[in-house]
């Protein structure tokens, strides 16, 4: 019985993940290694990968910072009324419930060039929608719960006892955070970071809507794959997609190792 389940699990696993990956790889190398390299060396491909890299970097940093802060507020801010905290708590989960495309659309509707806020930013020379900032905001929207939801349970379990002990020993909040709180939430932050990187690497819908998918300007790796497919440039699409897939799998393996190390620790 147990054997059957294991076999079944592997079967599903390979159908869902391994087979597409193999297809992706054979597609990418369909015209040999040179075809793969050519696909990636296109200026629009290099630009799109750079764009994705930048978004991942900025989003991960911002999400790390705000995610940890939000987690701390939601767990610790007892001076906020319980209602208010519950409201914030639900808002954090909003991106799980709302389709990324809708999320992107909301950002366009709120910050687009036709809105008051958007027009204001445009006037001071800061384009939000159809530009890098909008794409960062869109990706941030999609990835926001990842960090908060990793950090919150750990903070909840940690409580404030150790921090209060630190304060009676003379330590102020900066030192207390780095020497007492941080070591306890570190692993949660590492998971959250890995999840955020993986998610922002693959984000498509929200970014597509917000960026306008302008080649060599606001195109990311995923939206480039989409465009290549539209243009029946299958080899190129497979090539870029393979790069993304390899990164994602690498991240998952990293996460597994991180978990093991934590258990040993």
């Amino acid at each position: 019985m147990k054997r059957l389940w294991i076999t079944l699990t592997w079967l599903v696993f390979s159908i869902l993940i391994l087979i597409p990956l193999v297809v992706l790889a054979t597609g990418a190398f369909g015209e040999g290694t040179s075809g793969f390299i050519k696909a990636l060396a296109r200026p629009e491909a290099l630009h799109a990968l750079k764009m994705t890299g930048l978004i991942v970097l900025v989003v991960t940093l911002l999400n790390g910072l705000f995610g940890i802060m939000m987690g701390i507020y939601l767990v610790r801010a007892t001076w906020l009324s319980r209602r208010l905290r519950q409201l914030f708590n639900s808002i954090v989960d909003l991106p799980y419930a709302v389709s990324p495309v809708i999320g992107g659309l909301m950002i366009v509707l709120l910050l687009g060039p036709d809105t008051i806020v958007g027009a204001f930013f445009e006037q001071i020379g800061f384009k939000v929608v159809y530009a890098f900032p909008g794409m960062v905001i869109a990706t941030l929207f999609v990835t926001f719960p990842l960090m908060v939801r990793e950090v919150m349970p750990v903070l909840q379990e940690l409580g404030t006892d150790q921090e209060q002990a630190a304060s009676t020993l003379g330590a102020y909040s900066w030192r207390t955070f780095w020497q007492v709180t941080w070591p306890s939430i570190r692993w949660a932050v590492i998971y959250g970071t890995i999840l955020t990187v993986a998610r922002s690497l693959g984000e498509f819908g929200a970014v597509l809507v917000v960026s306008g998918n302008i080649i060599n300007k606001t195109q990311t790796a995923t939206t480039l794959v989409y465009q290549d497919m539209e243009n029946f440039n299958v080899t190129a699409a497979n090539g870029v997609a393979l790069v993304l897939a390899v990164f994602s799998i690498g991240l998952l393996l990293l996460m597994e190792r991180a978990k093991k190390r934590k258990e040993v620790h």
Partner: peptide, 20 residues
């Protein structure tokens, strides 16, 4: 005065040792 400045030692009921 904040706790940091009061020159007190506090032994908590559950000890609250820094576990790491």
């Amino acid at each position: 005065l904040p706790p940091q400045e009061r020159e007190i030692g506090f032994v908590f009921q559950n000890y609250a040792l820094f576990k790491h």
